[in-house]
Design a protein around this nucleic acid. Structure first.
Lengths: 347, 347
DNA sequence: GCTGGCACTCGATGGGGTAGAGTGCTAATA
DNA sequence: TATTAGCACTCTACCCCATCGAGTGCCAGC
């Protein structure tokens, strides 16, 4: 692949046509087909020359001598970054989104619905991360005694979601003490983000002076335990994985197993999605770009979503590299925005 | 298939040998192989005659003229019900179980671990239903005000598990009122099973007379809302689905998709597992016996598990019909017992 | 610089031949 | 009468090979 070639307007146009054609019917595209497809009146022979150049540049390749050409990852990348003409959502998709992506009592239901819509509409796999607890703010905290040294802590966050956890305390508390501790924490920390609360808590514990009375110290100590980040904090909801079994390019059982293993282990996928948290808008991993072998034949189109202008999660679509990006990209974009809206606490 | 044949000892012995052989290496079993396998000194020709009889009885069949024989569902059934010699767990498996299947704070963790062990050891898919909430007893109930008419209800069950739900009440309650309601419910219903509580609550509401004061009535009303059974109550944890992708008999993509679709829709699987709740010990569905098309190539080996002698859930293993029943059956059995033990509240 | 022509390559398809596994049937045997 | 050896038969799996069609690269001519 030597890049010292000229990429003139015509070559780009042909690359665009080739990628579009290939996305449409999945067969390697030959010069004859391309010559008919474009409005440039060029003979197959000319197009062959251009294709040879594109191949030199590593943008397309031929599976074997007498097949047509197929886009490489770089080809897709160039196509998506500079050549793609996105299609706006059709009214039906929009209607579906508006109808189903609405606020519910249970955040998980909304997330699940978003994931479901993503997979149903695109007929690929949809994925939505749960909102990062760290970034949402504390609304209310409560302690319930379970047994001697076991306390159930319950906290409600501003997305109206309830979390609970069992703490093992070093000493025994009376219900009244627990009540008092909760009251204290609510009065001091309510409204702050969980991350901020934790930070404040750690600070208080560090420079705890005598000025802080016994009860408060206990309360802060318990808050620390309660807010200890958990692995379960990082999770996502996946839908329509089975749609992926329909694609011929993923029909190799080895690969498919690897992919589904990645889905159920979650770690890799989470890592991948986390990289998209800070992206402005839609971000795309094409094939091997993700760095995960299991995703080598897949593309991932993601967009972050926000609650109160604060990015708290990511959603996306997973499918074969050969996907209708011009439809998927705007769809993922809009879904992210609407999910954010649906999760925003009605003030 | 005419059943008016004699099933003598020898035929059964040959059927057993055939099934075992087929389970072992997945190839149709011929008369010659069978003649070598058994200690009955019979020539292939004799065995062929017996096999023809077994085929007449619908216990085995041949994929085509010049292939060996393969067990039918009836054949497997007879094998499992009367011919199987189960193998006790080996010490390694037992050690793994005892080491990992221990009480934890979080029931879901224990369930997840059980599912994981089932799939890891058998190298097939493991499934464990969550304990039926209905059947566990109420330990503690608590109400927290969220906003005007929205109340968060939290209840802890005897398996130390915490459930929460948001109620929409018809009128507004003060924190004190909620506290009072919870106190009342705890004093009256604590220790009863959720099903019993619901029953009692409905009865109280039905013949609510003036003798019941306003507050109590409110409390009972809210308890009714809180205990309304939800669809989410019926759920299971599945592990190692991807193991199923390795089996050649399931390698048809159509079928596989159907199977995985069934897994993610959950309804059919739950229905199937529910049928095993009342079985004494291990229950097995072989292939089409399950009644679900998606499971036609699969067998399901299940056992119910109990908390406090009360059956609350089911666990099992899903794999190809051709599985090592003699190992899977005792393993599922023991796992169910140990899971029950791990879930039993330490009193 | 573009095009038509042409030889070439490669995968897919399908026919034909063969080897091997296993059967069912029959006649011989214990 | 139950068992066995022998034999013809059937079916699959496999390999080989010819053919076809799509598409290419290259070259000469416009």
């Amino acid at each position: 692949m030597n890049n010292n070639q000229v990429l003139n307007e015509r070559s780009l146009q042909l690359l665009k046509a080739l990628v579009e054609r290939y996305i449409q019917d999945g067969q390697p595209v030959g010069s004859r087909a391309l010559s008919k497809d474009t409005e440039l009146k060029l003979s197959p022979a000319t197009i062959r020359n251009v294709m040879a150049d594109l191949e030199d540049m590593g943008l397309i390749r031929s599976p074997h001598t007498s097949a047509g050409r197929v886009p490489t990852v770089s080809g897709y990348r160039l196509f998506i970054d500079s050549l793609l003409t996105v299609k706006p959502l059709n009214s039906e998709e929009l209607k579906l989104l508006r109808k189903n992506l609405i606020a519910k009592d249970n955040v998980n239901d909304v997330i699940g619905m978003a994931s479901r819509i993503l997979s149903d509409v695109t007929r690929m796999a949809g994925v939505v991360t749960l909102p990062k607890r760290e970034l949402v703010s504390l609304r209310h905290i409560e302690f319930l005694p379970l047994s001697n040294t076991r306390v159930l802590v319950i906290f409600v966050t501003n997305e109206q979601e309830v979390h609970n956890k069992i703490l093992h305390t070093s000493k025994q508390f009376t219900p009244a003490q627990l009540q008092q501790a909760a009251n204290y924490l609510n009065s001091v920390y309510s409204g702050l983000s969980l991350a901020a609360v934790r930070k404040a808590v750690l600070k208080e514990l560090k420079d705890a002076q005598e000025q802080m009375n016994r009860e408060m110290l206990d309360a802060v100590q318990m808050a620390k335990l309660a807010l200890d980040p958990e692995k379960s904090d990082e999770d996502y909801v996946l839908s329509g994985e089975t749609n992926l079994m329909g694609f011929s390019e993923l029909s190799d059982m080895e690969r498919l197993k690897e992919l589904f293993d990645a889905f159920s282990q979650k770690r890799g996928v989470i890592h991948l999605l986390d990289q998209c948290l800070n992206a402005e808008g839609v971000q795309i991993f094409i094939g091997e770009e993700s760095g995960y072998h299991a995703f080598e034949q897949c593309s991932l189109v993601t967009a972050p979503y926000s609650i109160n202008e604060q990015v708290v999660g990511v959603l996306g679509v997973i499918g074969p590299t050969r996907m209708a990006y011009e439809r998927v990209i705007p769809f993922v974009d809009v879904t992210a925005k609407l999910l954010g809206a649906a999760l925003n606490p009605k003030t």
